[in-house]
Design a protein around this nucleic acid. Sequence first.
DNA 1: CTAATACTTGACTAAATTACTAGGTTAAGT
DNA 2: ACTTAACCTAGTAATTTAGTCAAGTATTAG
Lengths: 164, 164
Amino acid sequence: MRLSTKGRYGVTAMMDLAIHDGVGPVTLADISQCQGISLSYLEQLFSKLRKHGLVEGVRGPGGGYKLARPAEGITVAEIIAAVDERVDITNCNGKGDCQDGQRCLTHELWTELSNRLFDFLNDITLSQFVSRPGIRELAMQRDQINGRFALAKRQASALRQEAR
Amino acid sequence: MRLSTKGRYGVTAMMDLAIHDGVGPVTLADISQCQGISLSYLEQLFSKLRKHGLVEGVRGPGGGYKLARPAEGITVAEIIAAVDERVDITNCNGKGDCQDGQRCLTHELWTELSNRLFDFLNDITLSQFVSRPGIRELAMQRDQINGRFALAKRQASALRQEAR
DNA sequence: CTAATACTTGACTAAATTACTAGGTTAAGT
DNA sequence: ACTTAACCTAGTAATTTAGTCAAGTATTAG
């Protein structure tokens, strides 16, 4: 388990998709503007997210990315693992030994801590953040301010339908 | 909150000190051998740990490093923060705004997740791992195998004293 | 005192990761 | 057709990580 800016970008981007889930796809250009990182870098990240079955791309005008699965089933740990693609857990773990064929005691303690951390993050889903009351409405307001008109429009009609 | 190999090195090294707490200082050369990283790199890490009041150096023959405080009071989050020295939490947070003077909603959600993660790691102390029954004895055995005779000797007499 | 041990500091280098740039191709909507 | 936006590839600048080298200082055993 590793947590870097890359993982943060992935998680926040996925939150963005989750907020607009069911409303319509979100373009990378939008996310790029909001997060302040380059479009091509986002493309790299989303390529990984797509290959791990977390998002789906929709081509053409009005296209973008959307969640491949409901937000309830997507955990933070999954997202981080997808963008990080890290295999090496410890220095010696690949070979299985630390020195003299013995694994260092501290490494065992570390993997235990690492597992606890994973369980913690694997228990947090996107929906936990997005399904809070009022979040959708707030997102719509911000979309209008930020010039995401297409999204805001679709969001508004989605909210009207929900109201019925 | 960031978690890289640097943080892992710091945590595992601190676990090593905690295991030998009360027994005597641990030399960086020992840790270097066990963790498989260079002595000078460890020196850099321990310089930070010392400046953050987590460890104390003992000079002269038989010297090394030891915990500056009891293991019960040292949390994993503290160690990671000490070696990482990271300030930037989000891309826009330094300036306080994301775009158009509005903070992106996703960034707020991220900081919330980040705080949860910090609380989690700040609740895990070194003693939780080290004070498990049998850990000290196991450490002594490994020290002998790994040629850490001085430590093993002190550890043994410490255990004898505990037995009384 | 002297030598051995171990911490301290700084400057410098190699490797890996992060982030970006520039050029495309492909699919779908108008 | 034309535009939009996903998708792909290669290269590269910037930053971080990890390690090296060298010249110190402090402590203590003998």
